[in-house]
Design a protein around this nucleic acid. Structure first.
Length: 236
DNA sequence: GCGACAG
DNA sequence: ATCTTGTCGC
């Protein structure tokens, strides 16, 4: 297993929006490029899964991202990379991607392996304009992506059954935008939605396998720990 | 108008 | 996300 760490902060992608109006316009333009008709990698088959996450120090205007590649069969870490930068956008519900993606892209670029699936901390299709973080990252990278969120955001759901693997629809009105998934007996569900080039069934299958030992996918846990560590290494 | 609101 | 001690449990 190898680790790559950042040197200098990274430039924003060209044309990165500054205002909320610009950001929603970008979402409305890019959402047409999301691919929803591919099943994506099959759960249980050999796969490199990459978890991404971001940590902030708003005081110092600093952000650190981590990308951790796991063997989906063993959940062992294969490779990991981090990137640090400056906060590119304020936190606005519905516009999370503009805050997280620039540094996440930098971390992904430093990874030597090609991800077979990227697991994001947040939502994909389950989004006010159907273009959450995971969908956005998928369109920008072309990689299969899914979103696994810890909270239901603005959506409704009936509690899934009490056992690991039980699910219930995540609803925006009448529309199913994802699924609440119980990953361990008796724990709070996580909220899974499609990002890019992965079906909902496969997204659920991958999430359940990645959450073999804990409520959250191992990819998310590993990326969370690493980006916090990278942030500490930057500031204190 | 008010409250809710991924991370 | 982040601020934060002790505490209950495996």
């Amino acid at each position: 297993m190898s680790t790559v760490t950042t040197g200098a902060p990274d430039a924003l992608p060209p044309g990165w929006p500054t205002t909320q109006a610009e950001a929603t316009a970008v979402q409305d333009e890019l959402r047409g490029r999301v691919v929803l008709d591919e099943p994506g990698p099959v759960p249980g088959e050999p796969l490199i899964v990459v978890g991404v996450d971001v940590a902030y120090d708003d005081e110092r205007d600093a952000v650190a991202a981590a990308a951790v590649a796991l063997d989906a069969t063993t959940l062992d870490v294969v490779e990991q990379a981090t990137a640090v930068g400056r906060v590119a956008f304020p936190y606005v519900p519905g516009l999370l991607a503009f805050r997280e993606i620039p540094t996440v892209l930098a971390a992904l670029d430093r990874l030597g392996v090609t991800p077979g699936l990227v697991v994001c901390d947040g939502y994909g299709l389950a989004h006010p304009r159907r273009f959450g973080l995971a969908a956005h990252l998928g369109v920008l990278t072309g990689l299969p992506t899914i979103g696994v969120a810890k909270n239901p955001f603005t959506f409704r759901y009936a509690p899934p059954g009490p056992r690991r693997g039980d699910t219930s629809p995540l609803l925006d009105g009448d529309e199913e935008v994802g699924r609440a998934l119980r990953t361990q007996d008796g724990v709070k569900p996580v909220f899974v939605s499609v990002g890019h080039r992965v079906s909902l069934d496969h997204a659920l299958g991958h999430t359940l396998r990645l959450a073999r030992d804990f409520r959250l996918p191992q990819s998310t846990r590993a990326a969370d720990a690493l980006c916090r560590e990278a942030l500490r290494a930057t500031s204190g």
